[in-house]
């Protein structure tokens, strides 16, 4: 037996019998869960408010066209280098690996089609979503979080400017608009990367590669990928704005908001990806 901790020395004689302790522990466990659950429900509720107003505000004046374009520039154009790099290498490595696998069955001709479907349906939207969450989502949460802790959001309120309209709407809207564009670019560049590796490195037959690609990749694949991209853009926009908007606790709080924006959006992207794939066969 381990020696009792110093502060528990006094309750050795008053220690309740085992069943009581088990019930107590179970009670604490349940209460902890209920508390955590209530916190989670509250959090989802507040995120829902941000999501709702982010959407409802789209049609409320002022429209914030200029700010939205600025945000599209930030979330979209500035994400291009990392999207180009990641997509080219993803297409390339996927081609390399699937070529090795298919070569065992002499089915090298299927590489183009396989890569095309995988990119447009899954890898394109998901990786683009994760990259945008990491790059733009973190920056949005950090910016809004800093604005919160330095009273800039209070200043907007005090100047009778709705911060949801001014800050959240342009960011959510920009993320939703930009994600499908980035995803389309990811798909295209990924396929180009695959083509380059497949044809010039693996010496696959060019017509076979292209024919399978054309046969296998339907417009449906592309559409479902782009639909996912819209959903992921909404997730990154709402989660990052929400985390930043409700930041408390100074510089440390801004750091936590930033981390948690990236973690929560990434998890939400991966989980919702499954359900979308399930719902749209």
């Amino acid at each position: 037996m381990s020696p009792p901790a110093p502060d528990s020395a006094s309750d050795t004689e008053a220690r309740p019998i085992l069943p009581v302790r088990v019930v107590e522990a179970a009670g604490r466990f349940v209460l902890g869960w209920v508390g955590g659950l209530r916190g989670a429900v509250e959090e989802v509720g507040r995120a829902g408010v941000v999501a709702f107003w982010g959407v409802a505000n789209v049609f409320l004046p002022p429209l914030r066209v200029r700010l939205t374009i600025q945000q599209m520039e930030f979330i979209g154009v500035q994400s291009l280098p990392i999207i180009l790099l990641t997509s080219a290498f993803t297409g390339a490595v996927f081609t390399l690996q699937s070529h090795r696998a298919f070569a065992m069955f002499g089915a090298q001709a299927m590489v183009g089609g396989t890569v095309g479907v995988a990119l447009t349906r899954e890898l394109g939207p998901t990786l683009t979503g994760l990259l945008v969450a990491g790059r733009a989502g973190s920056a949005i949460a950090a910016e809004l979080g800093t604005m919160r802790v330095t009273e800039q959001i209070d200043a907007l309120d005090a100047m009778a400017v709705d911060p949801l309209n001014y800050l959240v709407k342009p960011r959510v809207l920009a993320a939703v608009l930009v994600m499908p564009m980035l995803t389309a670019i990811f798909d295209f560049v990924g396929i180009v990367g695959s083509y380059v590796i497949g044809i010039y490195l693996m010496h696959l037959s060019r017509p076979e590669f292209l024919v399978r690609l054309g046969d296998w990749v339907d417009w449906d694949d592309i559409y479902s990928g782009l639909l996912k991209a819209v959903v992921f853009g909404f997730i990154v926009g709402v989660v990052s704005c929400y985390k930043g908007f409700y930041t408390t606790g100074g510089a440390r709080g801004v750091g936590q908001a930033t981390t948690s924006a990236v973690v929560v959006s990434s998890v939400a992207i991966l989980v919702s990806n499954f359900f979308i794939a399930w719902a749209i066969p």
Binding site: T146, M147, T150, E151, Q152, D154, A155, D157, A158, M159, A160
Partner: peptide, 19 residues
């Protein structure tokens, strides 16, 4: 209330300028 706010100006403790 928003209309009432328009009648006020406020100088914040840390200025709260938009950076």
């Amino acid at each position: 209330l928003r209309r009432v706010r328009l009648r006020f100006g406020i100088v914040f403790q840390q200025a709260a300028l938009f950076d």
